[in-house]
Structures are given as structure tokens and as C-alpha cells.
């Protein structure tokens, strides 16, 4: 089928099987390998992307489902890596192996956009669908709090 959607702010038209998994379309056909596959069953969150402003799991979506939709992957969040959540991940030491990082950042950036003043517990909830095996989540929570502060400052400025 001919699939048309907005991907990272650009209109995209691709020919694909309608039941192709969205994650395969993104990674294999479009070369956007920032969206990771850690389980294929919706349990790890490494494939978290944003569809119509909400976080979804690319491993449990069919390509046809994003027809006409606005899709954002980690590559499109801020290509230069200067989104406050991205910067906070670096600054707070929330990145280790980095495999869960794109999904974590997609979850947190989406959450913080709607909840500018989160308690640490709320940040844990916001990433409760993203498993990390390296960090113990401590520095991810730190990064979430730092990013919230930065976002607020940016908003004020």
C-alpha cells in the first residue's frame, strides 16, 4: 500500500505492506534505527515513539495505522540533541549502554510537555513502561527533574 504520514516534521510517502510492523518500517525501510526493539511484545518500551502527540509502542503497531498521522521518533525530537530531556540525560549521567535511552527520552519528553512540575515519583511513573537494565533508574529520575527545571526556565525566558 501507499502510506503517507508525517515523520519527524516531514511528509513521507512509502510503499509498504499494510501489516508490516511499524518498527520494521521505521528501522529497516526508513533507516531510523534510534527506535529500538528489546522484546517485540510491548514489555520493554525501547520502541517508544510519539504518534499524534501520545507515546506508543512501534513494535505493536501496523504500518497502516499511521496513515495520515504525525509520528515523531527520537531522531526527530531535536536532531541536534538539544532538547532539555536529551541534555539532562547527558548532564545527569542517565545514559549507560544507551539502548533504552531513546524510548526513555520519548516517554519523558512527552510526559513533561504536559506535566511541567513533576514529583520524583511521577517521573518514575512516566517511565514505568520503559525498562532499563543498566541504571537502576536513579539518574533517569534525576534527569527528569533536571529537564523539568530546564523546561520551566526556557518557558519563562
Amino acid at each position: 500500500m501507499k502510506l503517507e504520514f508525517t515523520l519527524n516534521s516531514a511528509k513521507v510517502t512509502v510503499e509498504t505492506a499494510p501489516d508490516r510492523r511499524l518498527i520494521d518500517l521505521l528501522r529497516e525501510d526508513l533507516g531510523l534505527t534510534g527506535t529500538k526493539e528489546g522484546c517485540g511484545t510491548g514489555e520493554c518500551g525501547a520502541c517508544t515513539i510519539r504518534v499524534q502527540g501520545e507515546t506508543k509502542l512501534a513494535c505493536l503497531m501496523l504500518a497502516a495505522q499511521v496513515q495520515g498521522c504525525d509520528v515523531v521518533t527520537i531522531e526527530g525530537l531535536d536532531p541536534a540533541g538539544h532538547h532539555p530531556v536529551q541534555e539532562a540525560f547527558t548532564g545527569s549521567g542517565a545514559v549507560q549502554c544507551g539502548f533504552c535511552t531513546p524510548g526513555m527520552i520519548m516517554s519523558l519528553s512527552t510526559y513533561l510537555a504536559a506535566h511541567p512540575d513533576p514529583a520524583p515519583e511521577k517521573i518514575r511513573e512516566a517511565v514505568s513502561g520503559n525498562l532499563c537494565r543498566c541504571t537502576g533508574y536513579q539518574k533517569i529520575v534525576d534527569a527528569g527533574l533536571a529537564a523539568a527545571r530546564a523546561l520551566k526556565e526556557a518557558h519563562r525566558g
Partner: peptide, 11 residues
């Protein structure tokens, strides 16, 4: 900060 974070946060 870890230099490898730069590419990891951008995917």
C-alpha cells in the same frame, strides 16, 4: 559527562 551519550540521546 560521557562523550558516548551525545549519539545515544539522539538515537
Amino acid at each position: 559527562p560521557r562523550p558516548d551519550a551525545a549519539a545515544k540521546i539522539r538515537g
